[in-house]
Every structure is written in structure tokens, then in C-alpha cells.
Design a protein around this nucleic acid. Structure first.
Length: 486
DNA sequence: TTTTGAGTTGTTCGA
DNA sequence: GTCGAACAACTCAAA
């Protein structure tokens, strides 16, 4: 009888390119696949509503895939993953634990403790890289420091060896003589009690198979025109792979090599360009992990210290209007409602709503990050932190202080026919073309024809953007002067 | 070693 | 209508 090992699944909910699983099998272990739900161990960032919903579907899918390999997923819920692993070791007689690494500050701390404790107890522990092309500690600039600017980071990544090829999906997964007890998926209470998530359910197919379908769609329909298409929320121009990547249903290595291979078979310069831009986005994700690893405090405070005294406002009512998509700026509102309805928002629109929250409303970026954390199915601590600090201008390679997005201009540029707004803000749907981006500029007659009563059926703008812009520039100047005084 | 040039995603103003 | 300049300060890499 061979000994058995626990393969602890975390943010790697897949069988393909799963080095922990494959190596456990290669070493001859029978495998007990385990998922432990321990939200209390995620520091200040326990999974939000949308994340939990996705997780439920993804675990279900993983369990099914394991069943197809004559195995199954053992589910547990715990206050302490270490205690639960110890219990599982006792129950199964396992002599080893395998997992793929995570990189968030709280997860690193937890995993380090677990590794030490288990090793001391004579349990073999093996951990692997499965969710990054480049682990953060392996990338340094010429002065041996972490990069703080993206372009040099990107060039550096291109100059070193290609990321390794993915490992293949095991054909068989050796089962233990007896599986330990598992609780039912419903007992994790991940799905909402009231049915608010049906829009998410309709919009996505969580799980490894769904992830790969999405990747094929990217290659077939999106990549060739990615350079321009990625800016168009009214079109199918982006990958929509972020939530799959976040949960590890597909790995960046799989994406990297699949995209490279696809490009190799194509001639068009545009297709090559599109692929390169897409891969750059994948490396932005890597950069986010790089930053969070080297500057872990940035999950709460700005990387740029002078922003710690930025005169942010506290305005619960304005925050609520932003969250609900009732700011009176159609593109902002469309984005916030797309988010609420589908658990996702187009990246171009994320920048616009982010800029609006921080610069037009002068609300702290942390409030935006928190809302995104709860509502996004792709909520990822590294990407979320970097994205919000970028838009606020307080992070690495940040937007210059004078860059304040104009929500109507962005609307006219990137949603020129107004189709995106029409879809998510139905009370404006009666307006034709790009007029939909500026309802407050329309005549009474035009509004009446479209069945709109400004201030009733759709709000008047919460702030005047041109005034708010100047206010933001003033606020930004004030912290600049602060640093001179110091 | 020091200097220089460039750097994800923009907007406004004035010529 | 179009176009270039201006809007900081700092990091990084190349010269």
C-alpha cells in the first residue's frame, strides 16, 4: 500500500498545469484533494459576496472534474487551516502536504507558519508556483531592488528566460484507500441567501472548462483587434478571463504559451500586435503581485507617502450614489451597474469610475477598493490595490496628478453610439447616439421625447465635472506644497 | 559616476 | 476642426 498525501487546493482550482497535484502523483502518492474554507485567515480581505458566489461554482466544477478522475474534493470549513490540515493528516494517515503558493501578505504569513509546523511534525511539505509567470522575489532591477515602474519591469521580463511550459493534466489521480469525511458544498454558505446573483450566473461559466472556453474565444474573436477593441466597452473587445485567472481555473503559463503559439500560426501584423498588448496585460498582473509582495503595506496605505495627508472627504451619501450608479454621469453609472449586475466591469470603465470617485468626489481610493472587493468576481488583492492606487495617482507608475478623466469625453470616445450606456442605464435608452452621454445638456423637448425627467427618472449630475476637476487639482497641489514645507 | 531621456490607459487651452 | 504644449516629480536604464 502506498502512502497518501494531501493536495491542498486554494487559488488553483484546476487539474491542468497544477504542479502540486502532478508532483504528488509523480512521487507515487495517493492523493486526497482538499479545499479548506477559512475566511478568517484572509486578513482584512475576507472573500466578498461576488467572490463567494464564484467560488461556490468553481468548487463544484473542480469536484466534478475530480470525479471524472475517480477522485473527489474534500471540503472543510475552519477557523485555522493548520488545525484542519492536522485533523486531515490524522484521519488519512497522510505523510505529505502539497500546495501551490499564494502571494498576498496574510496568505504568505499563514503558509509560512503552516509549513514550519508541519515540517516539525515530520510531515513533508512541498509548495510550487502555479499562478505567476515570475515570482516576485526573482525579479530585481540592476541595483537589486524591486521595480517601481512598469516599462522597465516588462522589458526585464522579456529579456529573461521564457516562463516554463505548463505541466499537463494527470490522466489518473490515484485515490486513497478511503476518503475522509467531506461536508457538503452548501454548508460552506457561499451562495447568497437572497437571489441577487442571477445576473452573475447568467454572465459567466466558472470552472476550468469555462476558463478554457473563454481563452479560445479570446484567440478566435478578440486578439486580432485587441489594440483598439480593449478600449470599447460597447464591443466584445477584452478577454474576460480575469475571474478565471484569479481562481486559478487557468494559469498565466497556459495563457502565455497558448497565445504565443496562436500568434506563431498567424501572419497579420495586427494580430501579432494585439497578442503582444494582451501579454503585456498579463504581465501587468505580475507587476501587481510584484508590488504587493515588496510593498505589502500598500493594501491599506498609498505607496506614495505624501498621499497619506490627502484631503479626502467623508461623504456617505455621495459614496452610495456612486455605488448604485446614480451619479448623473451616464458612463460612470453604466459601469457601476454593470458591476452590480454581472460582478465585472470593463477595464476602460473601471478607470473612469475610479477617477470619478477619487478626483470628482474626492472620496478615498480605499472606499472604492473596498466596494470593488465585495462586488467583483475577479477581486484580486494585488490587482485591486495597484489599480486603485494608479487611478488615485498615489501608487507605482501612477497616473500624473493632472490626469483627471472626463466622464463625458470618455463616453463619446469609447462608447460613441452610446450602446454601452443604453444597455446598463435603461432609463436613458430613449436617447439616440452620443447624446446619451450628456442628458443635462438636452432641451426639454428632447428629454420629453425620450421619456426622461431629469432629477426624477435619472439624476442630475452629482457634481459639475469642470468644477470638480479644478477642486481635485487644488487638492493635489496642496499635498505637493506640504512636502516642500517639510 | 553623472547625465539624460522616457515613462499604460488624459484633458484643456490657445494658436 | 486640428494640433502642440503644458500640466510635476520621480524612477530606471542607457549613454
Amino acid at each position: 500500500m502506498s502512502s497518501c498525501a494531501i493536495v491542498w487546493f486554494r487559488q488553483d482550482l484546476r487539474l491542468g498545469d497544477n504542479p502540486a497535484l502532478v508532483d504528488a502523483l509523480n512521487r507515487g502518492f495517493a492523493v486526497v484533494p482538499v479545499y479548506i474554507h477559512a475566511p478568517g485567515e484572509e486578513g482584512k480581505w475576507p472573500p466578498g459576496g461576488a467572490t463567494k458566489f464564484w467560488l461556490h461554482q468553481s468548487l463544484k466544477s473542480l469536484d466534478k472534474d475530480l470525479h471524472d478522475h475517480k477522485s473527489k474534493l474534500i471540503l472543510r470549513t475552519a477557523g485555522s487551516s493548520l488545525d484542519e490540515l492536522r485533523k486531515l493528516i490524522k484521519e488519512t494517515g497522510a505523510t505529505a502536504v502539497f500546495w501551490n503558493r499564494r502571494y498576498e501578505p496574510a496568505a504568505i504569513e499563514r503558509d509560512t507558519t503552516i509549513k514550519e509546523s508541519l515540517t516539525k511534525a515530520d510531515i513533508e511539505v512541498h509548495s510550487y508556483n502555479a499562478s505567476l509567470l515570475f515570482e516576485p522575489w526573482t525579479i530585481k532591477n540592476k541595483s537589486e531592488k524591486p521595480f517601481r515602474v512598469f516599462t522597465p519591469y516588462w522589458r526585464h521580463c522579456l529579456s529573461i528566460a521564457e516562463p516554463p511550459h505548463p505541466v499537463s493534466k494527470p490522466e489518473q489521480i490515484k485515490a486513497p484507500a478511503k476518503f475522509p469525511h467531506t461536508i457538503k458544498l452548501d454548508e460552506l454558505e457561499l451562495e447568497p441567501k437572497i437571489k441577487w446573483a442571477e445576473g452573475i450566473r447568467e454572465a459567466w461559466t466558472p470552472g476550468e472548462a469555462g476558463a478554457h472556453k473563454q481563452l479560445e474565444k479570446l484567440l478566435e474573436n478578440v486578439l486580432a483587434n485587441y489594440g483598439e477593441g480593449r478600449n470599447r466597452p460597447d464591443q466584445v473587445g477584452v478577454s474576460r478571463i480575469s475571474p478565471h485567472l484569479h481562481f486559478g481555473e487557468v494559469s498565466p503559463r497556459q495563457i502565455w504559451h497558448r497565445v504565443k503559439h496562436e500568434v506563431g500560426t498567424k501572419r497579420g501584423a495586427k494580430a501579432k500586435e494585439g497578442a503582444q498588448i494582451y501579454l503585456k496585460e498579463i504581465v501587468w498582473r505580475e507587476f501587481a503581485y510584484h508590488l504587493l509582495y515588496h510593498f505589502p503595506h500598500t493594501e491599506h496605505v498609498p505607496l506614495d507617502e505624501k498621499f497619506r495627508h490627502f484631503p479626502f472627504k467623508r461623504d456617505a451619501r455621495a459614496l452610495k450614489r456612486w455605488q448604485k450608479g446614480l451619479t448623473g454621469y451616464p458612463l460612470v453609472d453604466a459601469g457601476m451597474r454593470e458591476l452590480w449586475h454581472t460582478g465585472w466591469m470593463h477595464n476602460r470603465v473601471r478607470m473612469v469610475v475610479g477617477s470619478f470617485l477619487v478626483k470628482d468626489l474626492l472620496l478615498p481610493w480605499q472606499a472604492g477598493a473596498k466596494w470593488f472587493w465585495d462586488t467583483l468576481v475577479d477581486a484580486d488583492l494585488a490587482s485591486n490595490t495597484m489599480g486603485w492606487q494608479w487611478v488615485a495617482g498615489c501608487g507605482a507608475d501612477a497616473a500624473p496628478y493632472y490626469r483627471v478623466f472626463n466622464p463625458t469625453l470618455q463616453g463619446k470616445k469609447f462608447d460613441p453610439e452610446g450602446d454601452y450606456v443604453r444597455r446598463w442605464v435603461p432609463e436613458l435608452a430613449g436617447l439616440e447616439g452620443d447624446k446619451i452621454h450628456t442628458p443635462w445638456l438636452l432641451s426639454d423637448e428632447e428629454l420629453e421625447q425620450a421619456g426622461i425627467v431629469l432629477g426624477k427618472s435619472y439624476p442630475t449630475p452629482i457634481v459639475d465635472h469642470s468644477v470638480a476637476r479644478l477642486r481635485a487639482l487644488d487638492a493635489l497641489k496642496s499635498i505637493k506644497e506640504d512636502t516642500i514645507l517639510k
